[in-house]
Amino acid sequence: MKNTLLIKNIGILQTPTGSFSHKGEKQGENVKLKDAALLIEDGIIKEICEEGKLPEGAENADTVIDAEGRLVTPGLVEGHTHLVFGGYRQNEIPMKLKGATYLDILNAGEVFWIQ
Rank of each mutant, 00 (worst) to 15 (best):
M1C: 10
T4N: 07
L6G: 00
K8D: 06
N9H: 11
N9V: 06
G11R: 01
L13I: 01
Q14C: 06
Q14A: 11
Q14W: 01
T15R: 00
T15S: 03
T15I: 03
P16I: 00
P16G: 01
T17I: 11
G18K: 03
G18E: 02
H22Y: 05
H22E: 12
K23P: 00
K23L: 12
E25C: 09
E25H: 13
E25S: 13
E25N: 13
K26M: 12
K26P: 01
K26Y: 09
Q27H: 06
G28V: 04
N30E: 12
N30S: 15
V31F: 08
V31N: 12
K32W: 06
L33E: 02
K34A: 10
A37G: 03
A37W: 00
L38D: 00
L39I: 09
L39S: 02
E41H: 03
D42M: 04
I45W: 01
I45N: 01
E47Y: 01
I48Q: 05
E50I: 05
E50W: 09
E50G: 09
E50L: 08
E50V: 05
E51T: 12
G52L: 05
G52H: 05
K53G: 04
L54K: 02
L54Q: 02
P55T: 02
E56D: 13
E56G: 05
G57Y: 00
A58T: 03
A58G: 03
E59C: 07
D62W: 05
D62Q: 09
D62R: 04
D62M: 08
D62L: 07
G69Y: 10
G69C: 10
R70F: 07
R70Q: 12
R70P: 01
R70H: 11
L71F: 13
L71P: 03
L71H: 07
V72E: 00
P74S: 08
P74T: 04
L76F: 07
L76D: 01
L76K: 03
G79I: 09
T81E: 07
T81R: 06
H82I: 06
H82C: 09
L83V: 10
G86R: 09
G86H: 11
G86M: 13
Y88Q: 13
Y88S: 15
Y88G: 15
Q90F: 07
Q90K: 13
N91D: 14
N91A: 11
N91H: 11
P94G: 04
P94Q: 08
M95N: 04
K98S: 15
K98M: 15
G99I: 09
A100D: 01
A100V: 02
Y102H: 11
Y102S: 12
L103Y: 08
L103M: 11
D104W: 11
I105F: 04
I105W: 01
L106E: 10
N107M: 14
A108K: 12
G109R: 10
E110S: 10
E110A: 11
V111W: 01
V111A: 02
F112A: 14
F112I: 15
I114H: 12
